[in-house]
């Protein structure tokens, strides 16, 4: 494990930016969802988005993936400007970015195996290799026994884990998590966060994560994945371990905080203090 501090944000000195938003504006009729959003996601970092419902957190993920277009501003993902790309050109870029949707968004008519294998089948990967990689991805989320089940036969937490398996099967450089723990019980939520941390620390992927649960974000910022023990462990005081996690808070379509965990706990902003208390 690399030695650094638990500060996370930018402390690893990563210079390569994976995702960047520059003065992005978006409105739905009279509702101004985003008002000049700017931020950068450095390589290997996980940025956690906070904000009340309707503050535009999920919209930012959809904009990053080119599923929506901004009214104004520049969005760059893996060096390509998605805000001005055509839909046909975006398909290639999306293959390098995994996304876990809020309600899993698994295909109802396909089995778990077919859902996870979807992208590989589209890329015409040979069937034996597909099966091998699907089992591998499902083992990562500890759901290898659900291969032949349909999404309707799974619990909410299992569906989220299948969605994570579907997102990581192509070993993407970046993953976007849209409220992966939303509506789940605390135990299942912790299990999902453990998978996110595992993905962060084992595969070193960069990620944007939207959540309402502060506890999840703080768990991410203060925990690491122990590969030998195959479990998530808290970073001990004095242990200079970089958890590569930073925080971004949205309010009224604007970024009111973008920084590390310690910076967040030191902030004097009343709204933020109330939010995190």
């Amino acid at each position: 494990m690399p030695e650094a501090s638990t500060h996370g944000a930018g402390s690893n000195g990563a210079s390569r930016v994976v995702i960047s938003f520059e003065d992005v504006w978006l409105s739905f009729e009279d509702n101004h969802v985003l008002r000049g959003i700017s931020f950068e996601l450095p390589l290997g970092e996980t940025k956690v988005f906070f904000g009340i419902a309707g503050s535009g957190k999920s919209t930012i993920l959809k904009l990053a993936l080119g599923l929506m277009k901004p009214d104004k501003g520049r969005i760059t993902v893996l060096g390509e400007e998605v805000s001005s790309m055509r839909e046909e050109d975006l398909f290639e870029l999306r293959r390098k970015v995994g996304m876990v949707f809020q309600e899993s968004a698994l295909f109802d008519s396909l089995t778990v195996e077919d859902n996870v294998a979807y992208r590989l089948r589209e890329e015409h990967v040979p069937e034996d290799e597909i099966h091998k990689r699907v089992v591998e991805a499902l083992e990562f989320v500890e759901l290898a026994h659900t291969l032949k089940k349909f999404p309707s036969e799974l619990s909410g937490g299992m569906r989220r884990r299948v969605a994570i398996a579907r997102a990581i099967i192509t070993k993407p450089d970046t993953i976007l998590y849209d409220s992966p723990t939303g509506g789940l019980d605390p135990i299942t939520s912790t299990r999902i966060i453990e998978l996110v941390v595992k993905q962060r620390d084992v595969s070193k992927t960069s990620a944007l994560l939207v959540t309402h649960r502060l506890q999840d974000a703080f768990t991410m910022a203060t925990s690491y994945f122990d590969v030998k023990a195959n479990e998530m462990r808290p970073v001990k005081p004095g242990d200079h371990r970089d958890t590569n996690t930073s925080f971004l808070i949205l309010r009224d379509g604007k970024v009111i905080f973008d920084g590390s965990g310690p910076e967040l706990s030191r902030t004097q902003d009343e709204y933020i203090q109330e939010y995190i208390s």
Binding site: L67, R94, A105, F107, D108, E122, R166
Partner: peptide
């Protein structure tokens, strides 16, 4: 139903038209 449950967006996100 696929649209409102984000399955269409998921399909686009998975690189399919």
């Amino acid at each position: 139903s696929m649209k409102v449950t984000e399955q269409i967006d998921a399909m686009r996100a998975l690189g399919t038209d």
